[in-house]
């Protein structure tokens, strides 16, 4: 990987309790989450090391209480970590003064919240312009910019509405617009669509992908919905009891679960939808005939896999064959799913 690391998290700990710093120092290595709880502390984030590279979309997923929201709040220093280091664009987060931190948030970070976190007494436009107002931008400029972002998220014509007067989906669009107003490099989204109806959620995910296609930001996205994670992620980190169980591409997580917990988690998943031809392409035997696209999922190729007689099917990425896919292995995945 040559890509530049934006967020680097090394052995980060976040412990809640009476005197977490002291506890962490005196804590013997290898304690489990339950051991720590028995001592009267909660390990919100437990020895997490993870890197996020520029332009990447990292999805952190886990059940509620697994620490995913805590971790993202450590990335933005809404929580101070108890141990380890987190650097953002090379700056050590914990060493920043309050002023520097505010500067960082005003210029580099945006965040979207599960229950939107909108200010009830401000109109859509005022909510969106809020971060600009905080950093002291003049009235005219921030209005221009806010209008632009409101248009981007498709809320044109609702600028003067109050949050109370909008539907849940529209409110979250305001939340998204607000987080984008300062043109952040890093975008945190904490279960942004969980509070929405399934239909709206789907629509919002499409919308989100459209935005990301245009903006290409570095994203940390939190969800407890595996389907959502699979739809959006470049990489997925699965968390349990504050620790990251596995962090990998969706295909790898499905094909090679690192732990029993991850395996159980992925059991119910229709692998044929997740695994793409590119992952199955082996280097040695290229196979012959018409290649398939590397980005096509096994499910997309179902008809071909059943009807084609070739043992190895060539896989191509941008019109260049990168390897051959073992048809039997692919069929196996397809069958396992049904």
């Amino acid at each position: 990987m040559t890509a530049e690391t934006v967020i680097s998290c090394k052995n980060a700990w976040k412990i809640f309790g009476a005197d977490p710093k002291k506890y962490l120092r005196s804590m013997p290595a290898g304690l489990s989450f339950d051991d720590i709880r028995a001592d009267g502390y909660i390990a919100g984030v437990k020895d997490v090391s993870i890197d996020v590279t520029r332009g990447e979309m990292l999805v952190i997923m886990g059940l509620s209480g697994s620490g995913k929201s805590t971790l993202v709040r450590c990335f933005s220093r809404l929580h101070d970590i108890t141990g380890g280091t987190i650097t953002v664009e090379g700056q050590d987060l914990m060493s920043l003064s309050e002023k520097e931190l505010i500067e960082l948030r005003r210029n580099k970070m945006g965040m979207v919240f599960q229950s939107f976190g909108l200010l009830p007494h401000r109109t859509v436009l005022e909510n969106v312009a809020f971060p600009l107002e905080m950093r002291g931008q003049d009235k005219h400029a921030r209005r221009e910019r806010a209008l632009e972002v409101v248009k981007l998220v498709g809320l044109e014509g609702r600028e003067e509405y109050f949050p109370r007067e909008l539907s849940g989906g529209q409110q979250q669009r305001v939340g998204i617009a607000r987080s984008l107003a300062i043109e952040p490099d890093i975008w945190f989204l904490d279960e942004p669509f969980s509070a929405l109806d399934p239909l709206i959620r789907r629509e919002m995910q499409d919308e989100f992908l459209r935005l990301q296609g245009m903006l290409g930001k570095t994203i940390v996205f939190i969800t407890h919905d595996f389907d959502e994670a699979l739809r959006l992620a470049d990489r997925i980190a699965i968390m349990k009891d504050g620790a990251v169980e596995q962090c990998d591409t969706p295909d790898q997580i499905v094909l090679n679960p690192a732990t029993e917990y991850v395996r159980k988690f992925t059991e119910e998943i229709d692998k044929a939808r997740v695994v793409r031809a590119g992952v199955l392409a082996q280097g040695q035997v290229m196979g012959e005939g018409e290649p398939v696209e590397a980005s096509a999922s096994v499910q997309d190729l179902a008809r071909l896999l059943v009807q084609d007689a070739r043992a190895v099917i060539p896989v191509a990425q941008s019109s260049k064959v990168i390897g051959g896919m073992d048809r039997a292995a692919a069929l196996e995945i397809l069958l396992e799913a049904s």
Partner: peptide, 28 residues
């Protein structure tokens, strides 16, 4: 709500701005 406060923080509020623009209006 804590999320409203966090939203304020992430918008780069100073302590005073947080009180003036986020806390007090939300406790209306």
């Amino acid at each position: 709500p804590s999320e409203v406060v966090e939203a304020g923080n992430m918008s780069g509020c100073t302590k005073w701005q947080l009180l003036r623009h986020v806390y007090l209006p939300s406790a209306r």
